[in-house]
Amino acid sequence: MDIPVWVWLVTVGVTIVFFVVEFLAHVRTPHEPTIRESALWSAFYVGLALLFGVGIGLVSDWDHGGEYFAGYLTEKALSVDNLFVFLLVMTGFAVPRAYQQKVLLIGIVIALVMRGGFIAVGATLIANFSWIFYLFGALLLVLAWRQLRHDDGEDPGDNAVTRWSRRVLPVTDDFHGDKLLTRENGRRMVTPLFVTVVAIGVVDLIFAVDSIPAIYGLTEEAYIVFTANAFALMGLRQLYFLLSGVLARLVYLAQGLAFILAFIGVKLIFHALHVNELPFVNGGEPLLWVPEIPTWLSLVVIAATIAVATVASLVKTRGRLPENASDGGADRSSEQQHRR
């Protein structure tokens, strides 16, 4: 794809406008969104993402369209896993529901900025070093193993950065509405909401390491990588409130994501063998046959894995929907511990 500079500028500009409108329309006045509001906005953003993918297929070609849809599905699935971690962070910091929208929106913007940086770095590496596919593939296999064995009992908000923030920064004991900064006794201080945003930012950085190599395993087009990530993050705030009571029931999501990451990792290594040729060519004759996994097969595998993991999770936890977020987190953790 040969994307003109003006298309990049328009795409980034429209993305920024969407987030500004989100803030002005829904977050400036703190409130907890209703199920209806969350469902309508989630449907709008998903529809917009699907329409954009059809546009890529019509304007460019359906190979690129398929790459976009595969990338979007992968990023959306990873984003849902992000939501569960966000839920644990919010619960750990006891953030009131009315203030969670602001934290989520700031966290999503941080995620988009971080992923933008990773996308630029990834595109540069791919353009100059074809062997980087081996590294990306190996990284995804390691991440798949970690995803399969990660401990949901760990507190994602308890990390070195947040501990440093609490130790170094003057933090108030109580929330001050949805303010990140406040003044007490004439002294400028940060609120627990600020520390929560810091914790969400650290989580975003960790998940960016997962998502960018994964989508570069499906497409080498930086424009598709960026737009798939942008659309996966749009509407994530509404999806959080829509699924907050159901997230704890997705007990097989980690296994599904581990399989997807491993599949893309293997696909990347196969692609690297074809691109570099040296590891398996001797005098022009291949020493072993390695398949090129087509985009349509990647799309089918990713969609099927997400569907199976979701249905299996809902069947497994039928009748055990937690009444609140904290119970949900405990329920999912104990469920995964039971499976181990």
Rank of each mutant, 00 (worst) to 15 (best):
V190L: 13
R183C: 10
N128A: 15
V202F: 04
L287V: 10
L50W: 01
D174R: 15
F86P: 00
A258Q: 06
F129S: 14
L250F: 09
H274I: 13
S298M: 06
A43L: 12
R188G: 09
L297T: 10
A258R: 05
V121R: 09
V202L: 03
R187Y: 06
G117E: 00
G284Q: 13
N324V: 02
D63V: 15
P170L: 12
G217K: 12
V113W: 01
N324R: 08
L257G: 01
L239Y: 03
F136L: 12
E292R: 15
V27W: 00
S211V: 09
L288P: 11
E285V: 15
T172S: 14
G66F: 12
A228E: 00
T219D: 02
G53H: 04
R249L: 09
A98G: 12
N282G: 13
S130M: 14
I132Y: 05
L218Y: 04
A303T: 07
D204A: 07
V195S: 01
A123P: 06
N159K: 07
T11W: 02
L105S: 01
W131P: 14
A49R: 04
S326Q: 10
A330P: 02
P30K: 04
F280E: 10
V46P: 02
S130E: 14
I106K: 01
P279L: 10
L125D: 03
M189P: 08
S298H: 01
W62Q: 07
N229H: 05
A199E: 02
G71N: 10
V315R: 15
Y134E: 08
F52I: 06
V275G: 03
A307S: 08
V10R: 07
V12Y: 00
Y252M: 00
A214W: 05
A232P: 01
R339F: 14
V46E: 02
D61T: 07
F263I: 04
E67F: 06
L58I: 14
I16T: 09
P4A: 10
E221W: 08
N82T: 06
L105K: 00
F129D: 12
V246A: 09
R97W: 05
V10W: 05
I110R: 00
G137A: 11
A232Q: 03
G116N: 00
R318Q: 13
A272L: 08
G57R: 06
Q147I: 11
E335V: 15
L261W: 08
E154S: 05
G265D: 06
A232Y: 02
F241Y: 12
H271G: 08
A303W: 02
V171E: 10
R97S: 14
S211A: 14
A228W: 05
L105A: 01
V54P: 08
S244L: 14
G235L: 01
F136R: 12
M114Q: 07
G319H: 06
L218S: 07
I215G: 02
S211F: 05
V21F: 07
F44G: 12
L169H: 12
V7T: 15
G283N: 11
S326N: 09
T295P: 04
F280Y: 15
L243Q: 05
S244Q: 15
L247A: 00
N229T: 08
T172Y: 09
G57C: 10
G53F: 08
N282H: 15
P156Y: 03
I106F: 05
E67C: 10
L125Y: 10
D327K: 12
